[in-house]
Amino acid sequence: MDFTDAPRRPRAESIVPMINVVFLLLIFFLMTSRLAQPDPFEVTPPEAALDTPLEAQATLYVDKSGKLSFDGFEGDAALSRLADVSSQDAVLQLRADAELEAAAAAGLLGQLSAAGFARVELVVSPR
């Protein structure tokens, strides 16, 4: 009779440390990422052949009816909020709908100038 212990099977590698690393990476990327605020309404930008990068810090949305939205504020409240955040060298990004009338856009540019913005960049889609 053979009373020796049967040979033991080697233990399988544990995947718990790998799962821990994956979760730590997931938490790291979630904590360091910057979530973008969704657009307040759909805007179809006008088309242009010019392709230069935008340098703006703030974004003002204007739909085809002339409704304004900035930082969660709409209408005149958006303009007063813009006046609060404007500075001497601030650049504003204007996301206006392609169907916005030129007279409404010109009036808006006057209001933005009065709010303290010397430079406004219009977002366009390439042709």
Rank of each mutant, 00 (worst) to 15 (best):
M31F: 14
D76N: 06
P46K: 00
Q88W: 13
S113E: 15
R34M: 07
S87I: 04
A115G: 06
S69D: 07
D97F: 11
Q57C: 05
A77L: 12
T32D: 11
E99G: 13
P46C: 04
G66W: 08
L108K: 02
L60R: 08
V124Y: 09
L54K: 00
S33E: 15
N20K: 06
M1G: 13
F73P: 12
A6G: 02
L108Q: 07
G72K: 06
S87M: 03
G66I: 01
A96H: 09
L60W: 06
T59E: 12
L100Q: 07
E101A: 12
Y61K: 00
F23Q: 12
A12N: 04
S33Q: 12
P45C: 09
D84V: 14
F41H: 05
L50M: 12
G66Q: 04
A118V: 05
V21D: 10
R8I: 11
A105L: 02
K64D: 07
L92I: 15
Q88M: 08
L26I: 10
L82K: 11
L68F: 04
E13Q: 14
A48M: 06
A36N: 08
A49P: 07
F3A: 05
D39H: 13
T4W: 05
G110M: 10
A6I: 09
R119Q: 11
V120Q: 03
L35W: 15
A105H: 08
A102I: 09
S65W: 02
L79W: 01
L112W: 03
D76F: 04
L122K: 09
R8C: 02
D5F: 06
L109H: 14
R127P: 12
A106C: 03
I27G: 04
P10V: 06
S86T: 15
L82H: 01
